[in-house]
Amino acid sequence: MTPLCEMRDISIAFGGVRAVDGVSIHVNPGEVVGLLGHNGAGKSTLIKILSGAYKADSGEIYVEGQRVTITSPRDARRYNIETIYQTLALADNLDAASNLFLGRELTNWMGFVDDDRMEAETRKIMARLNPNFRKIKEPVSALSGGQRQSVAIARAVYFNAKILIMDEPTAALGVHETQMVADLIQELKKQGLGIFLISHDTREMLELCDRVSVMKNGRLIGTERVEDVTEDDILSMIIMGKKPDQAA
């Protein structure tokens, strides 16, 4: 089976820092692949190359078996790659609807942005993702961490993503909201999306993911099926930077 999306031998350096060094990962349809590693391991940088925020120094990207070049966020969106950034990437001064449709505004026949239609669509998707969400018309700076997170998630989910990147989507959330994200991931998985998920919570990752890849200092330590490893195995990969069978 051809993977839905594959990143092959990706490298990027900032000045002297090799932030990502020869990493290969892939995701199949209906699969969740976790990325684990300490802060600064290169996880965000790797997925930002896929989402078009950075351009890799070397390496190849394949979507459904086709070689693609992604040099801007627009390119990534064209291949139905949607991203929830760790920083959320929201314009604080704009309301939820404007953020959700940022860069892809709905327009009327005169070419003017159709705020009413965007608001209606936003109400619809928020009713599904976060029924408590009411501050549709307020700037997102007035929202709580969890509400901001749901705006960022709604933006990624709304546009029929095939490949979804979630960089620490639960970092700002409480227990209840975290469970909602977990449920959403299961639902999207059933719809056949391929998901790259980044999180610090190893136990949560073993529950949500089908496979996990561990990175350290920009290098890929290894990729394991979750049923083949224990939490301790993963932790030792993160800390020691060695595969379990290599560990003495």
Partner: peptide, 23 residues
């Protein structure tokens, strides 16, 4: 009422977010 205006305000609010949205 225009995309240009929306992008002007989005960029002012968060230039990185604007860039990541393909602006």
């Amino acid at each position: 009422r225009t995309r240009l205006g929306r992008y002007i305000f989005a960029t002012g609010g968060n230039p990185d977010a604007a860039e990541l949205s393909g602006i």
